[in-house]
Each structure stands twice: as C-alpha cells, then as structure tokens.
Design a protein around this nucleic acid. Sequence first.
DNA 1: CTGTATCCACTACGATACTG
DNA 2: CAGTATCGTAGTGGATACAG
Lengths: 133, 133
Amino acid sequence: MSTMHEHAEEKDLPFDVFARACPSRVTLEHVTGRWGALTLGALHEGSLRFNELRRRVDGVSEKMLSQTLQALERDGLVHREAQPTNPPRVDYELTPIGREVATRLISLIQFVEGRMGDVLAARERYDTTRGAR
Amino acid sequence: MSTMHEHAEEKDLPFDVFARACPSRVTLEHVTGRWGALTLGALHEGSLRFNELRRRVDGVSEKMLSQTLQALERDGLVHREAQPTNPPRVDYELTPIGREVATRLISLIQFVEGRMGDVLAARERYDTTRGAR
DNA sequence: CTGTATCCACTACGATACTG
DNA sequence: CAGTATCGTAGTGGATACAG
C-alpha cells in the first residue's frame, strides 16, 4: 500500500471529503443538503416540472427549490429541459451520474424511514434516562 | 398493488420524508447534515474518541461536533462510552443501525468522490455557457 | 407556468473562554 | 481530555411581489 495515512481500506483518490478544502465536500453538501436530497429523491421517480417538484417536496419554497436545482444542474446531476412555449414548460430529470447518486440516496432514505420506529424508541430512552439534561 | 398514490415502487411505510411534518425528515437531516454525514463516515472506520473525531472531521468546531454527536446518540445511531477515569476518556462508536446508515452514506460519499472529475467539468461547462449570468 | 428580486427573521456556526 | 457557556456574525431560508 502506497498510502501515507493511517486509515485502513482507503483508495488513493485525489478527492477526500474529510479534508476541509476539498471541493467534493461542497458537492456532497449539495447532494445531502436539506432540499438537495429530497429533490434528487423525487426526481429518481422520473422527470418532473418545477411546480410538480414543489408539490412533491413538501415545504420547499420557490426560492430554495430554484437554488437547489441550479446547484444540482451546475454539478451535472440534473438536466434542465426548457421548452420555449407559452406558457413556459420546464422539465427536470436526472443525468446518468445524478441517477446513480439518487439511487444511493434512496437506499439511505428508505433505510431511515424503515427504522424510524427504533429511532423514536431510542429518543424516548435518551430523553427519559437523561431527564431534563 | 394496494397503494393509492401515483408513485411507482413505493412501500406503504408509515414514515415519508417527503412529507413536511414527518419525523423521519429530521433524522435524515441529522444523518445527511453537514457534520452528521462526515461524523458517521469517520466512525464507520472504527471507534474514535472526541478529539480524534475532531481531527478526522477537518474543520468541525468543538461545539458542532458535540451537538452532532448528541443528536446522533439520541437517534440511536451512535453509542457513547464514557470511562470515569481522570483524565476522562470517551469513545464513540456506531450502533448496529448506525453502521447500516454509515455503510449507505459511505457508498454515496465514495461515489461522489470518484465522480468529482465529471462534476468539476460540468461546472466549467455551466459557468462558460451561461457566462456571467 | 417558471422563475427572479427583495426583505427580514432566525439560527447555524465559529471563536473564545471556561469547567469537571 | 471532554466537553459547556456565551457571544457575534454570516448565511439559510420563508414570504411576498413581480417579471418573462
């Protein structure tokens, strides 16, 4: 192994999210961010228009959805298809890379959803045993 | 299929992150949050002490690491083992559920790291074609 | 319909100092 | 070492109005 760090099975990739200045950390934040994760998750089911997304991602504001989509498009994870019609129609869909990211995200999301019973139980235990804190 | 929504392969789970008020969304945010994801990722390599984590998760402040760990412990994803010695020694490690979450997170992180070349290229293209914007 | 622009509240976060 | 407490700031994010 030609690596100089002490962490076990680590590839010698040029990008490391654990490093403060690594650009991959920024992209990871776009992907896992509050609205990024839900947006990618929604688009995993298929192409959607702006307001369809807005309804699907319950609670997102126009501004944040717009910002989120721009960041994801810039990172090459989402493709924006604008039709020059009137009224305008814009469809968003995942790129091939975006689809792979979304697949992994969905796996995480569904696992968390499936274990919420345990999580809620753990919280009760925590709050009870530690009382007021 | 006994489902009444229009989304394809969806299980009839009681929890749905896409719903604004669902507690699973809060947990997902703990997990995918800026420091939550990196903390779980670091712990996936093995048990770590507070300051070891602090060094591994480059850039995290004491305060944020402390908050992050408390949230993850409360959700039952991280176990905190405090030794009543002097000086104190506290080890953090993943719970079984935490380990499964971290595995999925790692898969996402490594994929993103591996595709940063494409991401960076996509950004260049975006910034060039849209010029100043 | 698909956004952008503006304003404002809140809170997440970092720096620092301090405690057990 | 392992945190907690306090404070100040910068940015997140919502509401609203408006533009193409």
